[in-house]
């Protein structure tokens, strides 16, 4: 299991793309928003939590189809499926590798991008906390989508179409947590809901992902 994680991380670093691309995309989205809505910092600081969450979500989406497609193309998935590793473990590790190369860097970079959007001071810890709690769910749900579409040629667009509705609850509670934190409101409910969703999908969704992956490998 560990060796699979190490291999995936090595590949992500060496092949480039994964890591830097998501961050660059996140930066560009953040920079483009003021061009779209105007430079008033009062407006920007109001919408900053939502924009940052949306940017992180889209940056995550960008690399989803790489989670399984590369291993599918070169035959590694067939070999992993016949190896001693359970497929449930394989998809969990794949999601973890995706989170380490996408979700975690986005979370760490978000405060700097928050500066660009005049995020109110009390919002920073909440923004980081909400992303830290929420982005693992994005990776796990994304892995499920990737497992569903892995056998489909040019499945990237379909993958986005399938996965985006699944992101709605995470986005709502994540952005709400960041927003309430920034405005100094009570944060307990969205915090608990976000944590609940994330731990729920981490616990249950790998079984569904492994199931559909097995169907696709048939």
């Amino acid at each position: 299991m560990i060796s699979l994680l190490i291999r995936d991380l090595k590949l992500a670093f060496r092949a480039g793309g994964g890591f830097g691309l998501g961050l660059a995309f996140f930066l560009i989205v953040t920079v483009l928003v003021p061009f779209g809505v105007g430079p008033e910092s009062s407006l920007l600081s109001k919408i900053a939590p939502g924009i940052l969450w949306l940017g992180a979500l889209l940056a995550c989406l960008l690399s989803l189809d790489r989670i399984l497609a590369l291993d599918w193309e070169d035959g590694s998935l067939d070999l992993l499926a016949t190896s001693p590793l359970p497929l449930e473990g394989v998809v969990t590790i794949k999601a973890l590798a995706h989170w380490l190369t996408t979700g975690l860097p986005l979370t760490l970079a978000a405060p700097f991008f928050g500066l660009l959007l005049s995020l109110p001071e009390p919002g920073y810890p909440w923004l980081v906390l909400s992303l830290l709690l929420g982005t693992p769910a994005l990776s796990v749900i994304g892995t499920f989508g990737a497992a569903l579409t892995v056998g489909i040629k040019r499945g990237g667009l379909l993958l986005s179409l399938l996965v985006l509705p699944f992101y709605v609850p995470t986005l709502i509670f994540g952005a709400e947590l960041a927003r309430r934190g920034a405005e100094g409101l009570a944060t307990t409910t969205p915090l608990l809901m976000l944590a609940g969703i994330t731990f729920g999908v981490i616990a249950l969704l790998p079984f569904a992902s492994a199931l559909v992956l097995r169907v696709n490998l048939r």
Binding site: P165, F166, V168, P169, I172, M193
Partner: peptide, 15 residues
């Protein structure tokens, strides 16, 4: 799986 997330979304949207 979608049904579970649809119900979740319903509550999320209410909130």
């Amino acid at each position: 799986v979608g049904s579970v997330f649809a119900v979740l979304s319903r509550y999320a949207v209410n909130f």
